[in-house]
């Protein structure tokens, strides 16, 4: 095994050992993986479905699926990316079930450029944090992201809220890297436009 002797050029992710132990039937190792990612998976599910009860169910189902399919995990991607992918699929399925007449997929609603062309050119002054208290701010941010089509919301959530890389986001969503980039740009611009309503600098003489 010459690989062990060679200088470590690439750090091995600590999950690799945990996953290997979990595959051997070590439930404590699996439980540690659950602890590491249960909050992230819950947040992702809640962002996509916008529903707390659904997010709880999805989190449980996603880990159960991961547990059952652990043997199929090849280690080509990070364990966390694989897990997020399962959770995203469960979440989209849940959305589809809720709106029985309408299909929901990563491709829906993303053909249009509506809202991605900047129209509001006011600076945000003072900063959003200075204009609103934390609870108000969180409320505005939640309402605004809820208005995005699922295909944009999901990309923005993984990339900018959960800090996955562009490549990881592509993998988790089954999209190409260019598709992720194009959606991310439009999601960011749409959010900017919508947030400008709240955060734009108030004009002289106008009550704040």
């Amino acid at each position: 095994m010459p690989a062990i002797q060679s200088p470590a050029t690439e750090e091995v992710h600590p999950d690799v050992a945990l996953v290997a132990r979990a595959k051997e039937g070590d439930t404590a190792a699996f439980e540690q993986l659950v602890r590491q990612y249960e909050r992230q998976i819950f947040r992702v599910a809640q962002h996509i479905t916008q529903n707390r009860e659904d997010a709880e169910d999805i989190t449980q189902d996603a880990f159960l699926k991961a547990y059952e399919k652990l043997d199929q995990f090849q280690g080509n991607s990070k364990f966390s990316t694989w897990l997020v992918r399962i959770a995203v699929n469960e979440s989209l399925m849940r959305l589809r079930k809720r709106k029985t007449s309408k299909t929901v997929s990563m491709d829906e609603d993303v053909q249009t450029d509506e809202g991605s062309i900047p129209r509001d050119f006011a600076e945000w002054r003072p900063n959003p944090e200075q204009q609103y208290n934390q609870a108000e701010l969180a409320d505005i941010l939640r309402k605004t992201i809820q208005g995005l089509p699922p295909g944009f919301r999901t990309v923005f959530t993984l990339r900018d809220v959960e800090n996955l890389s562009t490549e990881e986001t592509a993998e988790a969503l089954g999209l190409s890297v260019p598709a992720v980039k194009s959606r991310l740009l439009r999601a960011r611009l749409q959010l900017r436009e919508r947030l400008s309503r709240y955060f734009r600098q108030k004009q002289e003489g106008q009550p704040a």
């Binding site: 819950f42 962002h47 701010l137 969180a138 941010l141 900018d160 947030l195």
Partner: peptide, 10 residues
């Protein structure tokens, strides 16, 4: 602003 504010606290 989205990075800095946890919207769905567990």
């Amino acid at each position: 602003v989205y990075k800095g504010n946890e919207l769905y606290e567990v």
